[in-house]
Design a protein around this nucleic acid. Sequence first.
DNA 1: TGAATAGTGTCTATAAGACAATATCCC
DNA 2: GGGATATTGTCTTATAGACACTATTCA
Lengths: 240, 240
Amino acid sequence: MAATEITAEDRAFLAAYDPAAYPRPSLTVDVVLMTADRGRLRVALIERSEPPFRGAWSLPGVFVALSESLEAAARRALAKTALDPDRFSGWLEQLYTFGAVERDPRGRVVSVAYFALVPPERLAAAGEGSGAVRLAPVVDGAVEVALAFDHAAVVQVAVERLRGKLGYTDVGFALLPPAFTLRALQELHETILGRPLNKDSFRRRMLATGLLVPTGDREEPVGHRPAALYRFEPVGGRDG
Amino acid sequence: MAATEITAEDRAFLAAYDPAAYPRPSLTVDVVLMTADRGRLRVALIERSEPPFRGAWSLPGVFVALSESLEAAARRALAKTALDPDRFSGWLEQLYTFGAVERDPRGRVVSVAYFALVPPERLAAAGEGSGAVRLAPVVDGAVEVALAFDHAAVVQVAVERLRGKLGYTDVGFALLPPAFTLRALQELHETILGRPLNKDSFRRRMLATGLLVPTGDREEPVGHRPAALYRFEPVGGRDG
DNA sequence: TGAATAGTGTCTATAAGACAATATCCC
DNA sequence: GGGATATTGTCTTATAGACACTATTCA
């Protein structure tokens, strides 16, 4: 990792070094797991089973273990929702680190927030029913339930990040099933951005990226002409 | 801070809670202080005076104290360069948190990286001369000197962030003196992006933002027609 | 056949690149 | 006056929004 070599002096220093000799904050990872369903952006919340704030809703989080990376901790936190963290294949990205001195009544606890995205079908099986997990709708970038700690602010930052990255990254496709219509893609974008989009230019813009490949299939009978299904091709389709 | 109230149960729990009972990583803040000078982006490096890697170049950093916010820690780290942290008025923004398990030979040390921007004149007085501080040029997003820890990767992320935000934020103006010419602004953008920009559309685009206000003055005698000086008006000019 | 949305083509407005013509200022 | 860059204006090209029209599919 380090671009410089460990010296003999370093070895002596490190042998005597004791991190526990210095006061230091606790470190957690909290995850904002989002999905988009029925025209709403939704955030996975869990009911706290321990104090502080037992019974309150909060983001799933864990204390970071000494031997795990931050992302590994984030996956562990995901397991607190109904998702299987090992089979988790959605979007997972570091969001921001929250370090206000008074943000946690237990003392100084710094939290590295991640945000994660999965299509709603992946959550449906386990999601809403399983007791202490809940998919709360996001209205105007905020959850309507009161959240423990500074988690309401964390959710806000996550929603802003999602909105911001929608235009210049593949982040949107992480919220769709493998095959989807252009309409579904547009409705997703409108749900995230909270405003209507021009249909014509949206189609043109999406198709012009070269990231959409027609599957050849059409959507299920819908009471009108069915739309073509596309899948997302990350690297660059047949004409890049 | 918390959106929920502390309960009697919480009070009892908190009275008995001892953070030190759990193993936890150490936490540092490292700062990527950048400026742009003579057509180069530059990063402030300091020579480490303690092991590990004594004598190697690294980003200025500090261990986070229990009672200080992350940003306060970042300002304290800035003080290790020749800058006066209290008088620091430049750009300061959280960058990313680096938490790879093996990134620091002292053990598990998670680092919250910040990036900071100042115009070169502010660094000139104290900058390059003062012994263990150095302004290293950035070439292709990387510093040419070998850096301690994972600081080379941190610098890369900082440069990418700066490039990315140049187009849609005010970040560029933080690297310019209070009054500047359109040419200076364009050269700055070209330095940061590493590619030439179209002069005509750059002028149009910048003036169209409404963020530039003519000071009424012109640049110093330069051997040819002097350009008008502008200043940056954050909120929105007379026809914002 | 009618309802309803998919998908295509055309026109217009706006922003970016190219280029030409002046306008100034310093030497 | 001559050199050098600033500043303005025009033309061309790419892209987004608006709108009209045709194509399908299901009830």
